[in-house]
Design a protein around this nucleic acid. Structure first.
Length: 864
RNA sequence: GCCGGGGUGGCGGAACUGGUAGACGCGCCGGACUCAAAAUCCGGUUCCAGUGAUGGAGUGAGGGUUCGAUUCCCUCCCCCGGCACCA
């Protein structure tokens, strides 16, 4: 009698064994190292499905490489600073530190229950002084290098709460708590000169050939290198500097536009109340690019006039809300004839539009309607005086040369990328180690005084930074002159914390240095896994930080992540009811029963508790707001970790979004139970560990099974090691297992085949469902961990086929299939194909014009 | 608005280099077992026509290249991610 599959019991036992004997080597001594890193989680309270999926992917890859004999490092930590802890504090009055640490404890135990082979000795949390002191230390080094510097920046200001808001706290231009119209406000902040690295960050994307192409494209577009010219326009005593990618259209410039924050706009507003009012109005609304790009284009004439550097013509200078102070020079030369935004603006304010580039086929220029080709570079210059007739490229060169002669401009490269503002006016973050002294200015905290510790007992209330109201933190003496001084109360962007945590894991116990030799030994990360939502910011900052550390001589690699896998989101069905006012109440899918028609289509759904209907709201990302989150914890308790891991790897390839399905989990559970039953019944009949069949003595069925077995080894190894398509790997193991379960051994040689096959199935599935694999491996007669047993080898002799199926098409449509010996000649395949009745039917009476043969695969007969 | 990705049966997905569309799983239908139900096992399952052999249609829509297109090219529609202070 085989005892039933009881995951709770076996997972507990196996995890206990792993805690003393992890099953695979993590020592850093091996030359063949593999650093497998998953993005560390924000400790929000409990593990969600996205985490579960992310870390399962990492664990599968780690365990696969361990079975291949590599020393694997798979660490875990906590991205523990950030806004949600402050929000929780406001809601419950609990200090962020306490809330965060409780969450970490809970989530750590959840990760352990999932059986991830994490090296917990290296755990770190960014809110611990032992970690963030090195943020501060490196910041001071960057300050010495001039990479860190101070300037003003624009933030969202809530005039009621008197506080700076994050972009996500601005909803339709209003503060989330107060509903007050948000204003833009300029404040001093610290920046990092990531733009100094823009060219290298762009160039070295080319060496990241194991990153998804789309991530590299997004980063390249984000960095946004453009070649153009810097041009100076005289405006009274002032010079307006602009950057343009189209100096060839300079003769079409009909006005200038400056940002509302531009010094010239402010000066012009001093004695122009209407303009001052307009500039003030431009301060309303949030600072995010999406908000600015979608707002209506507005502008006002400053009354100032700039001089065109080549023609001497007077150009009106406008203030326009579509010009960004943060990009280029905060001013543009407007060429409405050939720039869509300028065209729209010029039409609206009736500014002149001049064509200076011809259209394709010399079509006439229509200044009443924008055409796509206006922005093209294929035409020739017109209305451009001496440059008429030049191509855009030649015009570019000629006009830049003119400008250089007059000292009014030069060719220049401009990046879209802006310097990284790291100051945050928030409590729960890493303090910026600066002391403000009335006499000495901004003084760095001396290294020996690091870390500047964040007080952990404060509770934010939404109105400003509580640090600023804490004299014990703020009041200090100047390190330079010793007189009373004030400590900086801004903290660092949490992207700083996450820009180097992966370099700390290898040396997490070092309290003397930020990184040491072990960091160089393990870096770069061989495989990094995380959400696609981090494709730009986090990954770009981490790349920059790595290069900055390299230039300080701290590490010797250029790029932190050799290979990147970006996982998709986890989605679930949503259900709701609507009251008379149109307000929706959302119900968790776990509490809803689905009604189906006889084809399995959903025709309705009812709430289990009251039996009344609910409406389906479509499939959406799991979120609190839609109450469609499925809790991994309850599933683990019900089915065990292996089932949940198996389903999440099986339901979709990792890069795609994953639609959660309880029925699908049930299917994964059934598979594991069948595996358990059949594998154990084989073992019970007499395990023969390590036995292998004599291939020559197998009957046709056995040979077929053995061929499938070895094909599956090759397929699964490729899927785990190269393609990372865990879903197809699992499907292949399922197919093999189904076939094996149907196979009835006739003699001892067949039983040896069964032993080989079960040992293989268990090892192939082990990275995904490690607990059941360990137990079945022991049942098959083996001592020690399945992860120490190594990955199965493909026997090439087993792969040889007796027959192949060749498809026969007539004019591209399948008309027959041939079972034939492999390696048949073109002629033989053609003859066999034409001899098929159904093929003859479609060929008869028509001349054969062509026959295409793909050996062992396909014959296509083209007739008529 | 800008940048990036996606769209295949009732559902999740497979088809890796242009060569059998729908592997595997779910759901559904039928059967076995059972006093009965659950569980389990066996069979069927893209749609339309046909008892069947088979035929026709079919990978968001439209067009193109090709002997052959889910795959390559063009136009369009819809959904999702990012947009620098969510992480």
């Amino acid at each position: 009698m085989i005892e039933p599959y009881n995951p709770r019991e076996i997972e507990r036992q196996v995890q206990q064994r792993w805690s003393s004997e992890p099953g695979f080597s993590r020592s850093g001594d091996s030359a063949d190292r593999f650093y497998c890193l998953s993005m560390f989680p924000y400790p929000s309270g409990k593990l969600h499905m996205g985490h579960m999926r992310n870390y399962t992917i990492g664990d599968v890859i780690s365990r696969y490489h361990a079975m291949r004999g590599r020393a694997v490092l798979q660490p875990m930590g906590w991205d523990a600073f950030g806004l949600p802890a402050e929000n929780a504090a406001m809601a419950n009055g609990v200090p962020p530190a306490e809330w965060t640490r409780n969450n970490i404890d809970h989530m750590r135990s959840q990760l352990k229950a999932l059986g991830f082979a994490i090296d917990w000795d290296r755990e770190l949390a960014t809110c611990e002084p032992e970690y963030y002191r090195w943020n501060q230390w490196l910041f001071l080094r960057l300050l010495e290098q001039g990479i860190a510097y101070k300037k003003t920046g624009v933030v969202n200001w809530d005039p009621v709460d008197q506080t700076v808001l994050a972009n996500e706290q601005v909803i339709d231009g209003r503060g989330w708590r107060t509903g007050a119209v948000v204003e833009k406000r300029e404040i001093p902040m610290y920046y990092l000169r990531i733009t100094d690295y823009a060219q290298e960050l762009l160039d070295s994307l080319a060496q990241l050939d194991e990153w998804p192409e789309r991530v590299r494209t997004m980063q390249a577009n984000w960095i946004g290198r453009s070649e153009g010219a810097e041009i100076s326009f005289a405006c009274g005593q002032h010079i307006i500097k602009v950057f343009t990618t189209r100096p060839d259209t300079l003769m079409g410039a009909t006005y200038m536009a400056v940002a509302a924050e531009h010094p010239l706009a402010r000066e012009a507003a001093r004695d122009n109340p209407a303009l001052a009012e307009f500039i003030a109005a431009c301060q309303h609304g949030g600072v995010s690019e999406a908000e600015i790009a979608t707002q209506e284009k507005l502008g006002m004439d400053t009354g100032l006039r700039a001089i065109h550097p080549l023609t001497g013509a007077e150009l009106p200078v406008w203030v326009a809300n579509y010009v960004l102070m943060g990009y280029g020079e905060g001013a543009i030369m407007a060429v409405p004839g050939h720039d869509e935004r300028d065209f729209e603006f010029a039409r609206k304010y009736e500014l002149p539009i001049v064509q200076v580039i011809t259209r394709p086929d010399d079509q006439p220029y229509d200044a009443t309607k924008w055409h796509e080709d206006y922005a093209g570079r294929d035409g020739r210059l017109v209305n451009s005086g001496p440059h008429d007739g030049l191509s855009c490229e030649q015009g570019f060169e000629a006009i830049v040369a003119d400008l250089e002669r007059q000292d009014a401009g030069r060719a220049r490269v401009q990046f879209r990328l802006r310097d990284w503002g790291i100051s945050r006016q928030r409590y729960w973050g890493c303090p910026i180690p600066i002391i403000h002294c009335e006499h000495c200015g901004d003084v760095p905290v001396p290294d020996e005084d690091l870390p500047v510790r964040l007080p952990e007992d404060l509770v934010p209330d939404g109105a400003g930074n509580p640090l600023a109201r804490t004299p014990e933190f703020v009041d200090c003496s100047c390190p330079s002159c010793g007189r009373p001084a004030r400590r900086e109360t801004d903290t660092m962007d949490t992207f700083v914390d996450s820009s180097w945590y992966f370099m700390r894991y290898p040396c997490a116990d070092n309290d003397k240095a930020m990184v040491d030799q072990r960091t160089d030994d393990w870096m770069p990360v061989d495989q990094y896994i995380g959400g696609i939502e981090h494709a730009i910011l986090h990954l770009l900052y981490a790349r920059f930080w790595t290069k900055a550390m390299r230039d300080l001589g701290l590490v010797n690699h250029d790029e932190p992540f050799a290979r990147l896998l970006t996982q998709g989101m986890v989605l679930a069905e949503t259900f709701y009811r609507e009251d008379e006012a149109g307000r929706r109440t959302w119900y968790n899918p776990a509490d809803v029963d689905i009604e189906r028609d006889d084809k399995g289509r959903m025709i309705g759904a009812v709430l289990r508790s009251d039996g009344n209907p609910v409406l389906a709201g479509g499939i959406e990302k799991m979120a609190k707001s839609k109450n469609n989150g499925v809790d991994p914890q309850s599933l683990i308790e019900h089915y065990g970790a292996d089932t949940v891991r198996l389903f999440s790897m099986f339901a979709a390839p990792p890069e795609q979004s994953l639609e959660w399905s309880d029925a699908g989990v049930e299917g994964a559970w059934r598979f594991l139970r069948r595996l358990w039953q059949h594998c154990r019944s084989h073992a019970l009949a007499g395990a023969m560990p390590g036995a292998r069949p004599d291939g020559g003595k197998l009957a046709a069925g056995g040979r077929e099974l053995r061929r499938r077995l070895h094909e599956t080894i090759a397929k699964v190894g490729d899927d785990f090691g190269r393609r990372y398509t865990f879903n197809t790997a699992i499907a292949a193991v399922m197919e093999l297992s189904n076939e094996l379960q149907r196979f009835k051994p006739a003699d001892d040689n067949d039983r040896a085949l069964c032993q080989e096959a079960w040992e293989t199935v268990v090892r192939l599935i082990a990275p995904v469902t490690p607990h059941i694999a360990e137990v079945l491996w022991a049942d098959l007669g083996h001592q020690g961990s399945v992860f120490a047993a190594g990955w199965p080898e493909v026997d090439p002799a087993a792969l040889i086929r007796d027959a192949v199926t060749v498809v026969v098409q007539v004019n591209g449509k399948v008309r027959a299939r041939l079972d034939t010996e492999p390696g048949s000649s073109r002629e033989r395949l053609t003859d066999l194909a034409l001899a098929e009745d159904n093929v003859a039917r479609f060929v008869s009476g028509k001349p054969v014009r062509k026959v295409i043969v793909v050996p062992d695969k396909l014959v296509n007969i083209v007739v008529g």
